[in-house]
Simulated scan of single mutants.
Amino acid sequence: MKVDAVVYLVDSCDKERFAESKKELDALLSDEALTNVPFLILGNKIDISYAASEDKLRYSLGLTNFTTGKGKVNLADSNVRPLEVFMCSIVRKMGYGDGFKWLSQYIK
């Protein structure tokens, strides 16, 4: 089975489970079958007042210096896996569209 991309959804309000989420994400990122697969990480529930900020989520997932940029970044001649965090609210239908637009540039 060929995987074109991974979309990893995190509940940004459930801060107590960030360590568990980091462990699962790290396992996926280290999976040899997913070495060149782009990762879109969505921090959901930003419509709730106590949701973690994007910076807090990045820090908690160990991604502070690990993402590749939200603009169009040419990674064609590099061995860098596209990986980025977008904050969203599925209920309010906001944020994830930008994430999927970003991801679409890396799916062949």
Rank of each mutant, 00 (worst) to 15 (best):
E54F: 00
G69C: 03
F100M: 14
S30L: 06
V85L: 15
N36M: 08
S30M: 09
E84K: 03
K72F: 12
V85Y: 05
L42C: 13
D55S: 14
K22W: 01
P82T: 11
L57P: 07
D31E: 13
T35Q: 14
D47G: 07
I107D: 04
L28I: 07
F100R: 06
E20F: 13
E24V: 14
K22L: 09
G62C: 11
K2W: 05
F86Q: 13
S21I: 11
A19C: 01
G99S: 09
L34N: 03
Y8E: 07
L34W: 02
R81H: 02
V85R: 12
V37T: 15
D47N: 13
I46D: 01
K15W: 01
G43R: 11
L57N: 02
K22V: 01
A51Y: 05
S30P: 00
K2H: 10
V91Y: 09
K70E: 15
I41E: 02
L75W: 08
Y8C: 11
N36P: 02
A33P: 00
E84S: 10
E16R: 12
D11G: 09
P82K: 08
D31S: 06
L57T: 07
K56A: 14
K2G: 01
D47Y: 12
G71A: 15
M87W: 06
K101F: 05
V73L: 05
W102S: 09
F39Q: 06
K45D: 00
E24A: 15
T35G: 02
I48Q: 12
